[in-house]
Simulated scan of single mutants.
Amino acid sequence: MTTVAFIGLGNMGLPMAKNLIAAGFTVRGHDVVDACRAVAADAGVELAGSAPEAMEGADAVITMLPKGEHVRAVYFGAAQAADGSQPSNDDGILAHATPEQMLIDSSTVDIATCQAVHDAAAAKGLHFVDAPVSGGISGAEAGSLTFMVGGADADVERARRLIEPMCGNFFATGDPTTGEAAKIVNNMMLFVAVQGLSEAATLAKKLGLDAKTFHQIASVSSGNSWALQTWYPVPGVVETAAVNNEFSASFRADLALKDIGLALAAAADHGLHLPATGLSAQRLAEAVDGGGGELDCTVVIAAVDPDAEGLPEGYVHGGARRDA
């Protein structure tokens, strides 16, 4: 039986781990959050006290972490310098991994962090792929995530068997870091689409269009998109939209801001100016600064229409929450 060490058992990691368990894998996991560990134990994950402990005897290690700084700490050790220049400490994955173990990182992080882990793994003769995902919490629960996997061809194929129970689509993207590149660009497109969707829904309302009728028209016309089909920010139109539940997050605004920031940083590295992406980032930053970081990213509709339906009571885009 294949044993997988799963590091990061939050909203995405736990359902991914559960799908591995359902496929017959043994999952030994670790998370620094007590609540996550408790829920994971109830779901059948064998808990470990640390990442190295989880790795003992495992055939593979999968990490699903929030940010690049967490990836660096977990792979290089807690005392790893921000620029990755310090050697691995004893508490890092790279200090404990063996060439027999397949290392898979499904976090969405900056290209520099991803490259640093690839380089360090290669220097130690370890096998590592970057394999970020698209599909959100619902996709993680359904086992229908899209995986974008970058690395050496043999490593990508070796990782495929481990990834398949968690995914609906598997794309080998090419060289190391190309999985992260694909994810960063894809999410950039999504959040630009969300900004356009917010503006379109507001203008349609102002022009007197029935929301459901307009949605049906756009769904079969040139304005169609995944965001339109899944996240339309008007109550009662699309069942899966966060607006139906006071913008309870399917993709948190603060994480969306992190991801779109990765795209802007990558663009700056290549001398590109992305004005639509910049506006989307500004709107997300306003939501986060106003106390809406834990709300769904579609809450940015409040920047266009402060009177949009479905907003949490007292929410003011760009300003602190206040009691109504």
Rank of each mutant, 00 (worst) to 15 (best):
residue 69 E to T: 07
residue 108 T to V: 00
residue 25 F to M: 06
residue 139 G to V: 00
residue 137 I to N: 09
residue 65 L to Q: 15
residue 40 A to N: 13
residue 67 K to A: 08
residue 132 P to H: 03
residue 127 H to K: 03
residue 51 A to F: 04
residue 38 A to Q: 08
residue 72 R to I: 05
residue 25 F to V: 09
residue 47 L to W: 13
residue 37 R to C: 15
residue 138 S to V: 11
residue 121 A to C: 05
residue 46 E to H: 10
residue 58 A to F: 04
residue 110 D to T: 06
residue 35 A to T: 15
residue 138 S to K: 06
residue 98 T to M: 03
residue 103 L to W: 13
residue 91 D to H: 09
residue 101 Q to K: 04
residue 107 S to C: 15
residue 33 V to W: 04
residue 95 A to W: 10
residue 68 G to V: 08
residue 109 V to A: 03
residue 68 G to I: 05
residue 140 A to F: 01
residue 112 A to I: 09
residue 32 V to A: 12
residue 69 E to R: 07
residue 141 E to N: 10
residue 145 L to V: 00
residue 146 T to Q: 06
residue 119 D to Y: 08
residue 145 L to M: 01
residue 140 A to Y: 02
residue 72 R to D: 13
residue 24 G to D: 04
residue 76 F to E: 06
residue 41 A to S: 09
residue 59 D to T: 02
residue 83 D to Y: 01
residue 136 G to H: 00
residue 111 I to T: 07
residue 143 G to F: 01
residue 45 V to A: 01
residue 145 L to I: 01
residue 130 D to N: 03
residue 63 T to V: 11
residue 98 T to Y: 12
residue 35 A to C: 10
residue 87 P to H: 03
residue 50 S to P: 09
residue 100 E to V: 12
residue 97 A to F: 11
residue 85 S to T: 14
residue 141 E to H: 07
residue 28 R to F: 15
residue 45 V to P: 04
residue 90 D to C: 07
residue 119 D to I: 02
residue 73 A to W: 07
residue 37 R to K: 11
residue 50 S to M: 15
residue 127 H to L: 07
residue 92 G to F: 07
residue 92 G to D: 03
residue 130 D to I: 04
residue 34 D to I: 10
residue 100 E to C: 11
residue 36 C to K: 10
residue 25 F to C: 12
residue 83 D to P: 01
residue 67 K to D: 13
residue 68 G to K: 08
residue 120 A to Y: 13
residue 106 S to Q: 11
residue 89 N to M: 06
residue 140 A to E: 02
residue 62 I to N: 04
residue 104 I to P: 15
residue 96 H to Y: 13
residue 112 A to C: 04
residue 99 P to A: 12
residue 63 T to N: 13
residue 32 V to R: 13
residue 81 A to H: 03
residue 40 A to C: 06
residue 45 V to M: 03
residue 138 S to H: 05
residue 78 A to E: 14
